[in-house]
């Protein structure tokens, strides 16, 4: 069984890129979300092994979404996707329950490293 992934990002471009990286590495992309609200809904519905979460999203940001997801499932494995200059937000996300982070621009190897760490 390959690991299932839910990709949360408001940019199709980013979802496609992360999706391609993970899919090529054998992951199964089971869902995508464009907003924090969607991310929480889809998490509950799909129960993926891994969530990649953008920080800045409309309609509930990534950090609040992590908080909600962790409340629902304390074992949730969330990988934050951040940009340079967001250290405070990433720290907040980790405190909210995210397990690790990657920084844009994404390099496939770094994304996969982080994913492996999160999946432990």
């Amino acid at each position: 069984m390959s690991h299932t992934v839910l990709i949360c990002d408001d940019a199709i471009f980013m979802r496609t890129m992360v999706g391609d990286i993970l899919q090529q590495a054998g992951f199964e992309i089971v869902g995508e979300a464009e907003t924090g609200v969607q991310a929480v809904e889809k998490y509950k519905q799909l129960r993926p092994d891994l969530v990649t979460m953008d920080i800045v999203m409309p309609d509930m940001g990534g950090i609040d979404a992590v908080r909600e997801i962790t409340k629902f499932d304390p074992g949730a494995r969330v990988l934050m996707c951040s940009a340079m200059g967001q250290q405070a937000l990433v720290v907040e996300a980790i405190q909210a329950g995210a397990k690790d982070f990657v920084v844009k621009p994404f390099q496939p190897s770094r994304v996969l490293e982080a994913v492996q760490r999160v999946l432990g």
């Binding site: 390959s2 496609t16 999706g19 899919q23 590495a25 054998g26 992951f27 199964e28 992309i29 089971v30 869902g31 995508e32 190897s109 996969l112 490293e113 994913v115 492996q116 760490r117």
Partner: peptide, 24 residues
Amino acid sequence: ELAQGVAPVPAKAATVVPQQRSVR
């Protein structure tokens, strides 16, 4: 060390078709 930390990711065959992604 770093390389060690990265376990090879199982290369899954293309049989796993994501169901919810739309096609562009």
